[in-house]
Amino acid sequence: MRDDDVLGAAIRWLNDPLVWQGPGGVLARTVEHLGMAGAAVLLAAAVALPLGVWLGHQGRGGAWLIPLTNTSLALPTLALLMIFASSGLGFGNRPTIIALAVFAAPPILANAWTAVREVDRSVREAARGMGMSSARSLARVELPLALPLVAAGLRTAAVQVVASVSLAAFVGGGGLGRFLVDGFGTRRYGQVLAAAVLIALLCVLVEAVLALGQRLLTPVPLRTGRGAVARS
């Protein structure tokens, strides 16, 4: 049983309709996976976007934003997941969504902040010179210009979250990570390989869709053929 044809088993697994159907099938798990990731990103964006835009507009927060982002890199996702799952939130999908939202927030926050900060000073002054209020300048001038970089932050966060949802299986949650942990537990390494490929594909797909969306959001004159600069 040790060195079976893992690749063959993976292909057989993917070819089995029973694997795809039903409440615990690949299709249902994929929907669950994307649903959890979507919820985490929305939750993070709901907090981080307004905060980042406001701080950037005010020109404040630079001192602690970068350390915060770096700390979030150093904090293991698994650790936060286990802390939340052991703190009365219950096990399963809920602590996972909250933990992943915490990890999605820093890139969204930092990019939104940078995006608004980096709107050309002269543009901002021109808007004020035309008699726009501060809020109106933010809404009509700064935000549209900041949009591409804001989208880059969302994209970074989303791809990271889609990959990390796999860890939910450690705390009794669902998503495609279930196939990894269960496959490992039952020594179905074909299933592990196939599920890993599925998750990687899902990440690449999400990345591609978001890259397209980001491009559509970018005003035509600003398109350079390359994505905006995300973190690092």
Partner: peptide, 26 residues
């Protein structure tokens, strides 16, 4: 890779994945 995967996915014999219960559904 994705194309190959999705074209061939789920078109084998039901239950052809190794082991007794590939998904709880079964």
């Amino acid at each position: 890779l994705a194309t190959v995967l999705l074209v061939t996915a789920a078109c084998g014999e039901p239950g052809s994945a190794d082991g007794a219960a590939p998904a709880p559904a079964e």
